[in-house]
Amino acid sequence: MTISKGLLIDLDGTLYHGQHMISGADVLISQLKANHIPYLFVTNNSTRTPEDVAALLNGMGIQAEPSEVCTSSQATAKYIAERSPGARVAVIGEDGLRQAIRQAGLLEVDQNPEYVVQGIDRAFSYATLSSAVQWISDGAQFILTNPDLLLPSDSGVIPGAGTIAAAIEAGTGVKPLVIGKPASHLMTYAMDILDMEPSEVAVIGDSMRTDISAGAAAGCETILVLTGITTEASLQADIRMAGIEPNMICKDLHELLHQLCSVHNSH
């Protein structure tokens, strides 16, 4: 594994858990800055704006600018805007997704959409489900920001965007196009921002099923940190399930930083 010129870094489970920084995250990011290694924070979370994410990270002591954040909402909006500039979009989601749709010059509508874009929506209702089923049955394209079925919360796990999408899929028989991890679109969006090729980039994450799978699908090198979803105990089962192996495995962020620095200094 050589030091890649750019790093795409997952957030939840990699740099923090909930509201708590994972040990070494602040040092890792400050060292990347000091060594001028380009990186972006890449998240499947569709609810937060880049400003929200940066504020969350800074609040924990991890240096972050909104421009360093890539969300599944931004990648979704760009995907649609490139194919259908100014398209009519029905949004099932929260502020992060709505803002990204507007900033991409798309028109948010509640009738006759060309696209139904869905993320996590904690106000999701039967009426919303009915509308989505109707729109998609009438020919609107169904796009999903991210397929996470469950999310951690302070009160245990809660349903994620993928669980809502499963209800819409059951009602329409239509599978959504997925933008976020483990699909490659979010990674491709982030690489475009860095202006780098897959061969120049490594993806860092805590989940074989999402982060590492997405990195591999996008053609990047992958670094698994055992700080979140995939643990030492689940590692072999998760590798079998994902059908791929990471290029590097680090037990924590301190080991990751040591590996990155030693490789960087040898060049």
Score class of each variant (00 low, 15 high):
3 I>G: 07
3 I>L: 11
5 K>W: 03
6 G>N: 02
6 G>Y: 01
8 L>W: 01
8 L>I: 00
10 D>M: 12
12 D>W: 03
12 D>I: 06
14 T>C: 13
15 L>I: 12
15 L>V: 12
16 Y>L: 08
18 G>D: 15
23 S>R: 14
24 G>M: 14
25 A>P: 04
25 A>H: 04
26 D>A: 15
27 V>F: 07
27 V>K: 09
29 I>D: 01
29 I>A: 05
29 I>T: 05
33 K>F: 02
34 A>K: 14
41 F>E: 00
41 F>K: 06
42 V>G: 02
43 T>N: 04
45 N>G: 06
45 N>K: 03
45 N>V: 02
46 S>M: 05
47 T>Q: 08
54 A>S: 13
56 L>S: 06
56 L>W: 05
57 L>A: 08
58 N>L: 15
62 I>L: 09
65 E>N: 14
66 P>V: 08
71 T>E: 02
72 S>Q: 04
73 S>A: 15
75 A>K: 00
75 A>T: 02
77 A>R: 02
83 R>I: 07
83 R>T: 12
85 P>R: 11
85 P>A: 15
86 G>P: 03
87 A>R: 02
88 R>H: 12
89 V>M: 03
94 E>R: 15
96 G>P: 02
97 L>S: 01
98 R>G: 01
103 Q>P: 08
105 G>M: 11
107 L>G: 04
107 L>R: 09
109 V>P: 01
109 V>S: 03
110 D>H: 15
110 D>T: 15
111 Q>A: 13
112 N>I: 07
112 N>F: 07
114 E>A: 11
116 V>N: 01
117 V>F: 01
119 G>H: 04
124 F>G: 01
126 Y>G: 09
127 A>E: 06
130 S>Q: 13
133 V>K: 07
133 V>S: 03
136 I>V: 14
136 I>H: 03
137 S>W: 01
138 D>M: 11
139 G>R: 11
146 N>C: 09
147 P>Q: 00
147 P>I: 03
147 P>E: 03
147 P>D: 02
149 L>W: 02
150 L>M: 14
151 L>K: 13
155 S>I: 13
159 P>T: 08
163 T>I: 05
163 T>S: 14
166 A>F: 05
172 T>V: 12
177 L>Q: 13
179 I>Q: 08
179 I>D: 01
179 I>V: 14
182 P>T: 05
183 A>W: 00
185 H>T: 06
186 L>C: 00
187 M>Y: 00
190 A>T: 10
195 D>E: 14
198 P>L: 09
199 S>W: 06
201 V>E: 00
202 A>C: 09
205 G>R: 08
207 S>K: 14
209 R>Q: 10
212 I>A: 00
213 S>H: 07
216 A>C: 10
224 L>F: 07
227 T>E: 04
229 I>M: 07
230 T>L: 13
232 E>D: 14
233 A>P: 08
233 A>Y: 06
234 S>G: 06
237 A>C: 11
237 A>P: 01
238 D>Q: 06
245 E>T: 15
245 E>D: 07
246 P>T: 12
247 N>A: 14
251 K>C: 04
251 K>N: 10
254 H>C: 10
256 L>R: 03
256 L>Q: 09
258 H>R: 13
258 H>G: 13
260 L>C: 05
261 C>M: 15
262 S>N: 15
264 H>A: 12
266 S>C: 13
267 H>I: 14
